[in-house]
Nucleic acid binder design. Structure first.
Lengths: 164, 164
DNA sequence: CCGTAAATGTTATGTTATATCATTCTAGTA
DNA sequence: TACTAGAATGATATAACATAACATTTACGG
């Protein structure tokens, strides 16, 4: 996928690393990273942008062996549900799209910077944000279970390219 | 609408106040709070829960004069777009629903606590959260434009009712 | 009253997601 | 090997959310 990663890096290695981590996590969780699930995860990993479910569906259709029947939406959504429940991906609700989690081993929430220009999404450390949320929630007597932070704006690459 | 507001209050007064504020804001912005827009806003104001577009559509159909033709989705979505652009409502992306803004006069972003049990959504002050976001975004060289914070959990009412 | 722009109505369709049931695959076990 | 129970996938249909495109009506300054 034509895509500018947030910083120059070996994306092949990035993918392999994520896949290896996924294998480990699934093993630990006693669940199976089946071919379909692995394929969907690989498709998501191709890009640092978030990917829509139907884009994944198309990519999956192309990736499948020539003779195979075309996959249907539930195939993708089931794989996505599996990957989410094992914390391998996040769903970005504001743009209805899915993206790989960059630190799947940690039990963390979802904090993203989404570039409105190039559509790259960067996962950021959430400790400080979470602390601020906890303070406000505490004042309301609210028990926090899941945090979704999606910040829209312009990334550093795009700012450099298009000043003003 | 059967609904527990976050704290006991006179909801009629709550609605009237919001409508009055909306009138003022529209006057200041030189835009018109037409009957359809006002009706949609009123429907949203009925509840402290977020309301789905098609639920609004149904309510709008009932609210219209007996002889009037049934409204179609674009009618609702146009009103929602108007209300959003004048900062009178927010869209909660994680649940595809719309809710009145509690401080429309301020130029603020969207910070919500959403109860997974009663579905009430509480808008919280975002200053601290925003500061934490700004710090992380700054480290990435990211220009922040819009912030969406949606925290899922259990509100104080529901915690009291269902301990454990 | 007329012309223009804004708002709304109307029809159709695009996009995202899930329910349901049939079939196939997998791993344990006799 | 063959059986079987549960997991995973295939397949069909439809639900839920949202917008494009164009026609019609309304508001209002001239």
């Amino acid at each position: 996928m034509a895509n500018k990663p947030p910083a120059a890096h070996d994306h092949r290695r990035c993918i392999d690393k994520a896949l290896a981590a996924a294998e480990q996590i699934c093993y630990k969780n006693s669940v199976k990273l089946t071919p379909v699930r692995k394929q969907v995860f690989t498709i998501i990993l191709q890009s640092h942008r978030a990917t829509g479910a139907y884009t994944i569906l198309e990519a999956l259709a192309k990736a499948l062996p020539a003779g195979a029947s075309k996959p249907a939406p539930p195939t993708v959504y089931r794989a996505l549900a599996f990957l989410q429940s094992n914390r391998l991906i996040h769903r970005l609700a504001s743009i209805n799209a899915y993206i790989a989690c960059c630190r799947p081993a940690r039990n963390h929430e979802s904090y993203f910077l989404i570039c409105q220009h190039c559509h790259n999404a960067t996962e950021i450390p959430g400790e400080n944000i979470s602390a601020a949320i906890a303070r406000q929630a505490g004042m309301e007597g609210f028990k926090v279970r899941r945090e979704h932070v999606e910040v829209l704006g312009v990334c550093t690459n795009c700012t450099a390219k298009e000043p003003g």
